[in-house]
């Protein structure tokens, strides 16, 4: 079951999405609200896998919600008309829907969410690439281009130089597919130590991204950085 949230300040707009979601077999609507603050409170107690998020809303708009969440669920933005499409890509949103939304277009967005999956574990440790299935297509990502990997729930965000890939996988499983330069730094993060620009007590800096380092992994991270002459 995929836990779904809908955030839109217009009841009629929510109604359409609620109806659409009811048509999807493994969707369970857990929250539907017009109040962004109510949603943020909800996520502190409950798990949500995917949200449909309106951009123009009172008090806290969609982009602000995205910016405020440390571990956001997957996001499909919905808007009547907007200039935010470009900015939204920075937040790794799955898709961007313009209201009114056709059911066909809605289904396409849903498929983007479920289609990102790993093909198979690659045993060959000498490989220079990570092979994943993204949007139903096999993709090879060179290790060098990967900055860090972040988990949320059963999904991973792989941040590379050029873009972010969202796949259904766990950090533990993906570790065996990566080279030794990749190190777990935190419960939810793996960093490519080869790309570290700076290290502090609590995070490593990779191309302007602060990747958190927890106490558990601090020693090993610093040892490895020394070996790589990063310290």
């Amino acid at each position: 079951m995929m836990k779904i949230g809908i955030i839109d300040d217009e009841i009629l707009a929510r109604k359409v999405l609620e109806d659409y979601c009811a048509k999807i077999d493994n969707f369970e609507l857990v929250v539907s609200t017009g109040n962004p603050l109510e949603f943020v409170n909800f996520t502190q107690q409950n798990e949500v896998d995917l949200i449909f998020l309106d951009i123009e809303m009172p008090e806290l708009n969609g982009m602000e919600i995205l910016r405020s969440m440390i571990n956001p669920p997957k996001v499909i933005l919905t808007t009547a008309y907007s200039e935010y499409a470009l900015e939204s890509y920075n937040y790794g949103v799955v898709d961007y829907l313009l209201k009114p939304v056709k059911i066909e277009r809605f289904l396409k967005a849903i498929n983007k969410v479920s289609a990102s999956k790993i093909i198979q574990p690659k045993k060959d440790r000498g490989s220079e690439e990570l092979q994943i299935k993204h949007d139903g297509m096999p993709v090879n990502i060179s290790f060098k281009s990967i900055l860090y990997i972040q988990s949320f729930g059963n999904y991973l965000k792989i941040f590379t130089d050029s873009r972010m890939y969202l796949i259904s996988e766990t950090l533990t499983n993906i570790t065996i597919l990566l080279s030794e330069n990749f190190q777990r730094t935190h419960k939810s993060y793996i960093a490519n130590l080869d790309r570290v620009n700076k290290a502090t007590r609590t995070y490593v800096l990779i191309e302007n991204n602060k990747v958190p380092v927890s106490t558990t992994y601090k020693v090993i991270v610093f040892e490895k950085l020394k070996i790589l002459s990063k310290l």
Partner: peptide
């Protein structure tokens, strides 16, 4: 105002679906 227009169209879409 495009926001107004498309939001209104969306309201109409929702009403007509029901």
């Amino acid at each position: 105002n495009p926001h107004f227009l498309f939001n209104s169209l969306n309201s109409i879409y929702a009403l007509s679906r029901q």
